[in-house]
Write a protein that binds this DNA or RNA. Structure first.
Length: 412
RNA sequence: GGGUCGGUGCCCGAGUGGUUAAUGGGGGCGGACUGUAAAUCCGCUGGCUCUGCCUACGUUGGUUCAAAUCCAACCCGGCCCA
């Protein structure tokens, strides 16, 4: 099947290890010579509401192509999202409704910087000719059966079963629905429809990207160049960053929470974060692992929220920790939380659940009994402790575990 | 379509009539320690403004004083055969 650009630190213009006529460098040179920008495809499935850092390196790369004068073809997989990408899932994904997909798609675009300051935005939405946003329902929703059969004829069952996820599931007796075989084909068909020259994806997308090449060849197009980027490890430092694993940092998170999460990334993953998410040079960073974590967290937060906000987040994070250690209430900008939803008199455990800080009141009760809840630095020991009115709590800082701090206010 | 095995809490997986919110492991959360982490140790891990009351073992109905456990039908899945 396809020969793809395998390099971990692939840059535009690199051409290591790939035969000449297929190398990215050759394509770039060709584009230059013919004054024709490359069409660089990146597909995203709007299956969740938030874009996280794991996605953002793809967008950074896409932006680099844009800045080099090429056309980013951003495909919103509004149709394929309703099938569910089997990639990396050990179970069939839930299918989403049209409404959910639409809502997600619009938050995605907002997070990518639509309508924002082009300097801060992740993608260039402004320069004419640099961005094309397409929804794949545009062509997929109306595929007729003969065309579907044609697509199905391009691949084989054993090719599909060669795909790791399918093989694993098949081997362990976990169901694979037939429609899941369609996913790689449809995603590949996207490449045909937009006439992609290059497709960006994580290394886990290799199969799908390669399928795109097969389909393009079948339809008489020149196969796209696949540029596969490394997968960012999640906050656990082991598995890939993924919403379903709960190990993500969302682009929409406030600076403090972004910074606090990042400075806890396991040592082993810190260098990956630095290489994949920032332009800092490893050699110039402190060798001390703790210092390096901080530098990484600061830089990643800065890229998203700007210098001032990042510095503030770092300072706040530090003083919150100090506060937790018994140094008194922090001066920091603690996110505020409204007491509006709480009906007084309120017992302590109910307070936490009513404010949404704990998933349930039983959960809140456990947290308190476990000694994980503090009010203005003082441990709350009794889950039944009763507060009679909101003003009794106004302005106090509620701490849940070591990470969550909320300043209580009556209204937002 | 036939045969067969199976569906238990976030996941895996015990339990086969009665101290049962259901052994154990993983994961998660909290506490101690530390670098905020890892490792280690300890605790918690259905819901509810909770000294009690609800809801739970695929679904529905049945037997019983009593059911995750027995019966029936149905739904879903694996494997083998067609």
């Amino acid at each position: 099947m396809a020969d793809l650009f395998p390099s971990r630190d692939a840059q535009i213009g690199d051409d290591q290890g790939v035969s000449a006529d297929q190398s990215l460098a050759a394509r770039l040179a060709e584009a230059e010579a013919m004054q024709r920008p490359l069409r660089v495809k990146l597909g995203i499935d709007p299956t969740g509401a938030d874009i996280h850092l794991g996605h953002s390196l793809l967008f950074r790369k896409l932006r680099a192509f844009q800045d080099a004068g090429h056309t980013a073809v951003l495909i919103i997989g509004d149709f394929t999202a309703r099938i569910g990408d089997p990639t990396g899932k050990s179970a069939t994904r839930v299918q989403l409704t049209v409404e959910e997909v639409e809502a997600n798609a619009s938050t995605y675009l907002a997070q990518l910087g639509q309508g924002q300051d082009p300097q801060r935005a992740l993608l260039d939405f402004h320069t004419p000719g640099r961005l094309e946003v397409r929804r794949n329902s545009e062509w997929l929703a109306h595929l007729d059966l003969p065309r579907v059969i044609e697509l199905l004829g391009i691949s084989t069952v054993s090719q599909m079963l060669a795909k790791e996820d399918f093989a694993k599931r098949y081997g362990s007796g976990i169901p694979i629905s037939l429609h899941e075989f369609l996913y790689p084909l449809l995603q590949g068909y996207d490449s045909v429809q937009v006439q992609a020259d290059v497709e960006l994806g994580g290394t886990d997308q290799k199969f799908n990207v390669a399928m795109g090449r097969d389909l393009q060849r079948h339809f008489g197009q020149r196969p796209q160049f696949g540029l596969l980027l490394p997968i960012l490890p999640g906050l656990d430092g082991v598995q890939k960053m993924s919403k379903s694993l709960g190990n993500t940092v969302g682009l929409r998170e406030d600076p403090l929470s972004m910074y606090s999460k990042l400075e806890k990334v396991p040592d082993a993953a810190v260098n990956d974060y630095l290489t994949l998410l920032t332009d800092l040079e490893l050699a110039r960073l402190p060798a001390n692992p703790r210092e390096r974590q901080k530098a990484m967290a600061l830089e990643v937060t800065r890229l998203r929220h700007g210098e001032a906000a990042a510095r503030q987040a770092q300072a706040d994070a530090a003083s919150l920790v100090a506060g937790a250690a018994g140094m008194g209430a922090a001066e920091a900008d603690v996110p505020e939380a409204s007491l509006a939803a709480v009906r007084f008199p309120a017992k302590a455990f109910y307070l936490l659940s009513a404010m949404g800080l704990c998933a349930s009141s039983s959960e809140a009760r456990r947290q308190i009994q476990g000694g994980g809840v503090r009010l203005d630095g003082e441990k709350l020991a009794d889950p039944n402790r009763e507060f009679s009115c909101a003003s009794e709590l106004e302005g106090k800082v509620l701490q849940l575990g070591r990470k969550i701090f909320r300043r209580l206010v009556q209204q937002i």
